Structures are given as C-alpha cells and as structure tokens.
Simulated scan of single mutants.
Amino acid sequence: MTLQKKATIISSSTATVLIVIKLFVGILSGSVAVLASAIDSVLDLIVSAFNYFAITKAEQPANKKFNYGKGKIEALAAVIEGTVITVSGLFIFYTAIKKAIKSEPLEYLGDSIMVMVISLALTIALVLFLNYAAKKTRSMVVKSDALHYKTDVLSNGAILVSLVLIQVTGFEMIDSIMGVVISIYIIHSAYEIIRDGVYILLDASLDEEVVEKIRNFILEEKEISDFHYLKTRKSGNTNFVDVHLVFSPGISLLRAHYAGDRIEEKIKELIPNEEWVINAHLDPYDDSEMNDTQPIKMD
C-alpha cells in the first residue's frame, strides 16, 4: 500500500474517533463550538474516504482511453474538498449566530474541555504525519488533507480556549463568538485548496522557480542556440514539459539528441521523486515565426 493511501486511511480512522466523542459530549453540553467541531469531523471522514478513492484512481497507469493517466482526479478531489470545507464553515457560522440569538446555556463544561484536549492531541499527531506524507509523496490530495487538519488544530485550540474562558468567566457568548471566528477561518483556508486544484485542472504552469531553472538548464547547454514554446503543466504526481530547442543547421541528429537528453536529466533532478514527461522538439533553426502555434505571452 502506498504512503498516500495509508495517509487517507489514518485520516479516516482519526476522524471517526473524533466524531464519536465530539458528538456525544457536544449533544450533552449544548456547546455550539463542540458540535460544530463534530460536524467538521464528519466532513473530514467523508473527504478522507473520497481522497482514498481519488488516490486509487490517480495511481492507475495510462491506458488507451486516458493516454495521460488520471492524475487530475487529485486536483478534482482538492476542489471538492475545498468546497466541502467552505460549506461546513458556512454551517458553523449559521449555527453560531443562531446560538447567540437563542442564548442557550452550556452544560458539562468539564467534559467538553476534556474532549477538546483529546481532540487537539489526536489532530496534532495526525497533522505531523500528513505533513511527512505530503513532503514524501508531493500528493496534492495529501497536502490538502494536511492543510484541512491544520485548520482543525487551530479551531480545536480556539474552542478549548473558549470553553476554559466560559468556565472561568461565565460569559457564554464567547462560545458563539469563537464559532463565528472559526467559521471565517475555515472558509478562508478552503480558498487556497480550491484555487490550487482549479489551477491544475486548467493546466497552469509549474511554479515560476521551477520554470526558471528549466530555462537556465536549456541556456547552459552549449549545443543549443535558442529555444521557444516552453510550456509546463502538472497532473497528479506527473510534471509535463514541452519545448522547442534550436540547434545549428549542421549539427548531427545524434549530437542534438544527446544535448536534449542532458537537459532532460537535469530537469528530472529538480523534483526526483515525481514523474516527468518531457517532449523536446529539435529545430535546425528558429521557426517560431512560421509555426502556427501562438507564442506564449510571458508577464
């Protein structure tokens, strides 16, 4: 089993444990913050289960129907996850406002505080593992899951602080205020997840730092006089690079081929634990003006 799949299974298991204890104490205490956190954990479980499905599909090899594989399903999963997070944030916001208007008293504060301490400890441990898995695999799904649970760490910590303050001061409006703050933060964090997923679905280029290094590798190759139509994109764990390399007209095909190979090897070393598909078109002269392909406008 791959590390990506293990990460989603551990996420799902952790979410299940948190759902049980949060719902039980949240219903008893009537704390909107604890109940909101329980609902968030339910969504965590749904998202983690979907992520497992997405990773399973993304890892399938290319075939006759899907020539480039199914890597983009990870980006689609990230967009769905971000949308789910946004919806949960909106629900928490609504619940917090409703709680403030009705002014319902809190009960079992001690139990609620204990639940949030346990929840915070489990979530911190999960985030540490997901961060490790994300760095090792560079999977967008795992990265999104890690970011999601990071927001849970902050929200659980905020809820814990609010419950302690309520127990000390007796000012129960803190519960609703904290619920509103948490909801706004959750919605804000979801934006980044959705944005990154949409960028990949729309074939956005690789990070500018990576693209600049690719340009430098090409320019450093003494056999190449120029290049054009450099295009990059990402799909799942695979990076795609297309470029036209310009050589002197008299160069042999073998020398041009070796030069292209040297550049490809350097590019692959940029992120060695990811797949690279590099398509280099060898030109004996600069044909960019004659080519029907429209040149890319660089800002």
Score class of each variant (00 low, 15 high):
residue 176 S to E: 03
residue 184 I to E: 10
residue 161 V to K: 07
residue 28 L to M: 12
residue 55 I to G: 11
residue 119 S to L: 01
residue 126 L to V: 03
residue 298 M to W: 10
residue 226 D to C: 10
residue 149 Y to Q: 05
residue 114 M to D: 02
residue 58 A to W: 02
residue 137 T to Q: 06
residue 108 Y to M: 13
residue 194 I to G: 02
residue 111 D to L: 14
residue 126 L to M: 04
residue 95 T to I: 04
residue 27 I to H: 06
residue 286 D to F: 00
residue 118 I to A: 14
residue 109 L to Y: 05
residue 235 S to V: 07
residue 269 E to S: 14
residue 61 P to V: 04
residue 260 G to Y: 03
residue 291 N to K: 12
residue 57 K to N: 05
residue 236 G to P: 05
residue 92 I to H: 05
residue 297 K to A: 08
residue 127 V to P: 02
residue 169 T to D: 05
residue 43 L to E: 06
residue 35 L to T: 01
residue 138 R to D: 13
residue 93 F to Q: 12
residue 139 S to C: 03
residue 192 E to P: 00
residue 34 V to D: 03
residue 105 P to V: 09
residue 99 K to L: 04
residue 56 T to G: 07
residue 32 V to D: 06
residue 123 T to Q: 13
residue 272 P to D: 09
residue 140 M to H: 03
residue 276 W to K: 12
residue 7 A to H: 02
residue 280 A to R: 02
residue 112 S to T: 14
residue 197 G to E: 08
residue 279 N to V: 11
residue 193 I to E: 02
residue 167 Q to T: 05
residue 220 E to Y: 07
residue 120 L to A: 14
residue 21 I to C: 08
residue 169 T to E: 02
residue 61 P to L: 07
residue 104 E to G: 10
residue 262 R to H: 13
residue 103 S to H: 12
residue 156 N to D: 13
residue 74 E to L: 09
residue 119 S to M: 03
residue 182 I to S: 08
residue 109 L to G: 15
residue 145 D to F: 03
residue 135 K to Q: 13
residue 67 N to G: 06
residue 224 I to T: 00
residue 242 D to E: 13
residue 255 R to W: 00
residue 228 H to P: 14
residue 157 G to I: 11
residue 109 L to F: 06
residue 89 G to W: 01
residue 289 E to V: 06
residue 97 I to G: 10
residue 122 L to I: 05
residue 181 V to A: 15
residue 173 M to W: 15
residue 83 T to M: 12
residue 210 V to I: 14
residue 126 L to Y: 04
residue 125 A to D: 04
residue 34 V to P: 03
residue 124 I to G: 01
residue 216 N to Q: 15
residue 254 L to S: 15
residue 86 T to V: 10
residue 148 H to T: 08
residue 86 T to Y: 11
residue 114 M to C: 02
residue 55 I to P: 05
residue 296 I to V: 13
residue 111 D to I: 02
residue 232 T to G: 13
residue 125 A to H: 09
residue 162 S to L: 10
residue 275 E to I: 06
residue 255 R to N: 00
residue 45 L to F: 15
residue 185 Y to T: 13
residue 211 V to M: 03
residue 180 V to E: 11
residue 208 E to I: 08
